[in-house]
Design a binder for these strands. Structure first.
Lengths: 338, 338
DNA sequence: TTCCCATATGTATACGTATACATATTTGCA
DNA sequence: TGCAAATATGTATACGTATACATATGGGAA
């Protein structure tokens, strides 16, 4: 069942059927109705692959994310999918699970399926797969990766202001010994976040101490491990910033397990504001990154390349907002040595 | 850049290039190597849409889920994606967000993209979109929907044994007044679960009371609301089974908020065993449904239709396992009135 | 050497769509 | 009514692949 069959049934040509389906204004209303009726009757669905083959455009945006079990991403995917589908396009999602090897495979999947652009939220440092995309003229929008170029845009998260807010908030509670639990080393996004932390500390007139800077894995376990290390220091920090909420939650768990209570003994600030942050106990103070804003930014950035996939990309920015809940509080009285 | 270009560069015909790419054994090793070299050099990626157009098969399985923010689904998606990609196929994911309207749209997306089969984890009661799939000869594998037929298989969750285990566990703790918080009415999956609960109660010689059967929404909020209702009863239940973990977690939150402690005042059992269940406080006793088993079952069921998309489907079954953690305990001493 | 068969490669083709271009039909205006 | 312009519809085509079928090459047996 194809457009030609519909055409025959409606007594028109296949071109007219195509025009009706694509909403061309050139068709007489009565003809439109006649064709529509046939389409509905036989439940016709056009075959996307024909168009994809002819025009090299699939009406699909690729979405590459590192870890779908981090609740931030499902929430993002949901927003992105809605936006994309609303615009009669498709989303092709792939996860890398932080394996650089899977990145290559993932890019391959995108190229084979002829996606019209890729939203890359996984920030592996590997550049080869990325170059593959560029080379094949597939527009790419990265998050917090940095460089832009032809067919390459970037969306920067405004960590600077977010970190400033977080540290100002802690400073109000008189915290000085502030630690940071980051993500994997080797991801640009991890570097960005730790850099933003150090800068914000300095701007607030506080000294970032190297023993207070730990590495996690963006997951609960990594946060727990790093927190355990921090708490084993002779001179414990009084507050901790985490690279994301899962890390923060892991940190809280580790602290509570050894009888360190939050926020009375130590304050914790997360990043992302996943739904879970409000469910966990105590509810987590965190820097919210709006999934909808981010998804919309990605979509807009991709759409910009529609007319010319090879045009010069742009830098975009998405803001963060401090959400104060109960995991932060005044610096503890005793042991406020230094 | 297509196979013909590769063919020219390698001094062979396009058919040979195709054979090399598809791993045909008919090609001489030296020729394979020569072609491979050219493919690597020019970084050629075949165009999937040509095959899809010609053979009406896209090498893609559709996956329809209700709510990606329920952590059960990302974990499932991860498994399913891995399996599918390992078999050189693609996954097209779509979420319905429990809107029956989006189901229709979602099926349309699948048909337009010519998926080779659909894994349907959203169990809306609407049958029209499903018929659309069947009509277009797209194999369909449902979860806990029930009927099978030509090109239609079903994967049943073994609630019966799961519920029996859960109730036996509670009975050991001498619980008799056991409540149930289900999901939306109108979803077959909800009916299945509540039916399994009632049957299990009866089999255990306990009387399911209608005022102890509440409706949630598979989310935290619904669980909290239902639990609040249960706790406002004069004769409170001493244990609660929830249709999924989020519901259970919501229930725990609601209970703790009004000073009812878990498990000393009331025991709670979830369903799914999402990662969060082990992080939440107290860790949740729950019926584990293995994502990997489930994903594998879906994949196998879909692959069965590969040779003949119209063959008779089958019933499959996936088991559940009781994971005992800290949200269940002995029935409270005082107020054990009846 | 001859012939056949197995192995290896080549040729031709169809899949369904959107659009450029061609053609038909209607409308507007004199 | 007649004719140009505007509107509406039709015709033909190319996109890249996998495979049926055709053909070529090589090796071994008689």
């Amino acid at each position: 069942m194809d457009m030609r069959d519909i055409a025959k049934l409606a007594g028109v040509s296949s071109a007219t059927v195509s025009r009706v389906i694509n909403g061309s204004t050139l068709v007489r209303p009565e003809t439109v109705e006649r064709v529509r009726k046939v389409i509905d009757e036989v439940k016709f669905f056009p075959n996307n692959s024909a168009t994809t083959l002819k025009y090299g455009k699939s009406g699909t945006y690729g979405l590459i994310i590192p870890d779908i079990t981090n609740p931030f991403f499902p929430e993002f995917i949901k927003c992105f999918e809605s936006i994309v589908v609303e615009h009669d396009q498709e989303m092709l999602m792939a996860t890398t699970d932080f394996h650089p090897g899977r990145m290559q495979q993932t890019v391959r999947r995108m190229l084979i399926r002829k996606v019209d652009g890729v939203a890359l939220l996984a920030s592996e440092i590997e550049t080869e797969p990325i170059e593959n995309l560029i080379q094949n003229r597939v527009p790419l929008v990265t998050m917090d990766r940095g460089p832009i170029g032809e067919g390459l845009s970037n969306i920067a998260i405004n960590y600077r202001s977010g970190m400033d807010q977080a540290i100002a908030h802690l400073k109000e509670f008189l915290h000085k010994k502030i630690a940071y639990i980051g993500g994997f080393t080797g991801l640009t996004i991890s570097e960005h976040r730790v850099t933003a932390f150090i800068r914000a500390m300095k701007r607030a007139g506080l000294e970032p101490r190297s023993e207070y800077i730990k590495v996690g894995d963006y997951r609960v376990t990594g946060g727990a491990a790093a927190m355990t290390e921090l708490l084993s220091l002779k001179d414990r920090p009084t507050a901790v910033l985490a690279a994301n909420d899962l890390t923060a939650i892991g940190g809280m768990r580790a602290a509570m397990k050894i009888g360190v209570s939050i926020p009375s003994d130590i304050s914790i600030v997360g990043f992302d504001d996943i739904e879970m942050s409000d469910i966990v106990h105590p509810p987590l103070t965190t820097l919210r990154l709006s999934r909808l804003d981010l998804a919309q930014a990605f979509f807009n950035a991709l759409e910009c390349f529609k007319s010319d996939p090879h045009r010069q990309g742009e830098q975009y920015m998405v803001k963060t907002t401090l959400i104060v809940r109960d995991s932060t509080g005044p610096v503890p009285r005793q042991r406020s040595s230094r």
